[in-house]
Amino acid sequence: MQTLPKERRYETLSYLPPLSDAQIAKQIQYILNQGYIPAIEFNETSEPTEYYWTLWKLPLFNARSTQEVLSEVQACRSQYPNFFIRVVGFDNIKQCQILSFIVHKPSRY
């Protein structure tokens, strides 16, 4: 059995190739189906010591479709093309972040 090459990994799903918009939409649909609140965050780095990411606008409390969230991801990508961008899902009952995954990496990575 061969091990994976040593390289930097980023959050959930990081062992997979970059996700297509259709695959991102499926993950966002899961967030919505679970009743979690989607939000988009961005940061210049994805270092493990970097705990605070900047929130893109407010969390999408009223999002009912994946297209609403994807359009905000696209807007964030166009505004910050050289930043890491991730989608997070918040649980309003537990008052915490349940999941997050990278949807955009700068071209230098």
Rank of each mutant, 00 (worst) to 15 (best):
M1F: 11
Y51N: 09
I40D: 00
Q23G: 02
P106A: 06
F83A: 14
L99W: 02
T12G: 01
Q95I: 03
S14D: 15
A63Y: 03
Q74F: 08
E68L: 06
I24L: 06
E7Y: 08
Y36L: 15
V87N: 04
Q95P: 01
W56I: 01
R64P: 00
V88N: 00
K6Y: 11
G35M: 08
S78M: 13
S20A: 12
R64A: 15
Q2E: 15
N62H: 03
N33E: 15
A22W: 07
K105E: 15
A22G: 06
P5R: 06
P17Q: 08
Q67L: 13
K57F: 05
S20L: 05
P18I: 09
W56D: 00
Q95F: 05
F42M: 06
C76F: 01
M1S: 12
T54W: 10
P81S: 09
P106L: 03
R77W: 02
S65I: 01
E47D: 14
P38Q: 03
L58I: 06
F42D: 05
L19N: 04
S20R: 09
L4V: 08
T66C: 10
Q2S: 12
F61H: 07
T49F: 07
Q2R: 10
I37K: 02
K94S: 12
T12V: 07
E50P: 02
N33K: 10
A39G: 10
A39R: 02
N43H: 13
C76H: 04
S14A: 15
K57G: 13
Q79T: 14
N62C: 07
Q95V: 06
I98R: 13
N92I: 10
P5K: 08
E47S: 11
F101V: 03
T45K: 14
K26D: 14
A39C: 11
N92H: 08
K57M: 12
P5Q: 07
L19M: 13
Q79N: 10
P59F: 00
E11G: 14
T49W: 11
I85T: 08
N92A: 08
E47W: 09
V73W: 02
I85N: 03
F101E: 04
I93S: 08
Q29G: 07
V69G: 00
R86Q: 14
Q34N: 09
G35T: 04
L13D: 11
E7A: 09
T49C: 06
Q74G: 03
P17N: 04
W56N: 03
K6S: 11
T49Y: 13
I102T: 13
N43W: 06
S14M: 07
L60D: 01
S65N: 07
K105M: 15
P5D: 12
H104N: 05
I85H: 07
L99T: 15
P17V: 08
R108P: 02
N33I: 03
S46R: 05
N62D: 11
R8V: 14
Q74P: 00
I40N: 00
E50D: 11
